[in-house]
C-alpha cells in the first residue's frame, strides 16, 4: 500500500467535530436474498467527522455506504440522514440524494457529456440553478480540483486521476453536506493516487463530513478522526487512527493490518 507521500502538514483548524448529528444508523440489517450482508449496524456520524471504513473484501463496506444514500435498500433498522429518515418515500430519497455526494471506485462520469456538462447537469436539473450560475460554480470546483483547463474535454480524454477529481468536483457542485467515497483510489495507477488523495485532504480541511471506504492508511492517519473496521457484515472495531493502528484489539483487525501495512 502506498503511504501518503511527503507527510504534508494538515491544517486541522476547520476540522472540528460539532455535536450535531449528520448520520444516525441504528440496528440496521440488510440481506441480499438470504445472504445476511449487514448485521445490526449501529453508527453515529457527527457533522464534520471524517470516518475511514476499512475491512477485507466482501465485508460489506460498499453496501453500508450505499445504504446511506439508498442506492441499496435496508430491510430493518433505521437510517437518519440530516434529520430525515430513509424510508420508501420517494421525496425523502431524492432530497437526501441531493444532500449526500458520492464518489465511486470507477468514477462513473457521463461519457457523452463534457467535463463541464458533467458538473452542471445535476445542479441545473435537480436544483434548478440557472445555467450561468451552475457554470460558475462548476468552474470554481474544477479549479479547486486543479483541472479547469479540461472543462470542455470529454471524460474519455482524461487520465484516471483526472477523471476521479472531476467526479469529486461533480459531487461538490451539488453543495452536499456529506460526502461518501467508495474506494476512490483503488482503480488508479500509483502515481495518480496522490493527486486524488490531496483533493480529499483539502476537502477534509474545510470541514466536510466524510465517510471513506479506503485502504490508504496514510490518508486515514492524516485526516480521519475515527477508523471503522468491518468484517462479515459487522462493525468489529472502531477507534481513533493512532490507537487503531498501534493497538488493534480484534484478531481480525491485527491480521488485516499486518497484511495491508506489510512488514
Amino acid at each position: 500500500m502506498s503511504e501518503m507521500p511527503a507527510e504534508r502538514t494538515v491544517d486541522r483548524s476547520h476540522m472540528q467535530v460539532s455535536d450535531e448529528i449528520a448520520i444516525q444508523i441504528t440496528h440496521m440489517n440488510k440481506w441480499y436474498g438470504t445472504f445476511h450482508v449487514l448485521r445490526d449496524i449501529n453508527l453515529t456520524v457527527h457533522r464534520g467527522e471524517r470516518i475511514v471504513i476499512a475491512g477485507p473484501s466482501g465485508s460489506g463496506k460498499s453496501t453500508l455506504i450505499r445504504c446511506i444514500n439508498r442506492l441499496e435498500e435496508h430491510q430493518s433498522g433505521e437510517i437518519i440522514v440530516d434529520g430525515t429518515e430513509l424510508s420508501s418515500d420517494l421525496k425523502n430519497i431524492d432530497k437526501i440524494r441531493s444532500e449526500v455526494g458520492m464518489v465511486f471506485q470507477h468514477f462513473n462520469l457521463f461519457p457523452h457529456l463534457t467535463i463541464l456538462e458533467n458538473c452542471t447537469l445535476a445542479p441545473i436539473w435537480v436544483r434548478k440553478v440557472p445555467r450561468k450560475q451552475a457554470t460558475e460554480t462548476a468552474m470554481h470546483f474544477l479549479e479547486k480540483v486543479k483541472i479547469p483547463e479540461q472543462a470542455n474535454k470529454y471524460p474519455g480524454q482524461l487520465s484516471g486521476g483526472q477523471q476521479q477529481r472531476v467526479a469529486i468536483a461533480r459531487s461538490l457542485c451539488m453543495m452536499p453536506r456529506i460526502m461518501l467515497f467508495d474506494e476512490p483510489t483503488s482503480a488508479l495507477d500509483p502515481e495518480m493516487i496522490k493527486e486524488v488523495l490531496d483533493t480529499m485532504v483539502e476537502l477534509a480541511e474545510e470541514g466536510m463530513t466524510m465517510l471513506c471506504v479506503t485502504h490508504e492508511m496514510g490518508f486515514a492517519r492524516q485526516v480521519a478522526n475515527r477508523v471503522i473496521f468491518m468484517d462479515q457484515g459487522q462493525i468489529v472495531e472502531q477507534n481513533e487512527p493512532e490507537a487503531f493502528f498501534n493497538n488493534p484489539q480484534h484478531e481480525r483487525t491485527k491480521l488485516f493490518l499486518s497484511q495491508i501495512l506489510g512488514h
Binding site: 444514500n69 442506492l71 440524494r97 441531493s98 449526500v100 445535476a122
Partner: peptide, 12 residues
Amino acid sequence: GQYEAADALGLD
C-alpha cells in the same frame, strides 16, 4: 455505474 451516478446525484 451510469444509473448509480445518476441516482446518487438526485436525478429522478
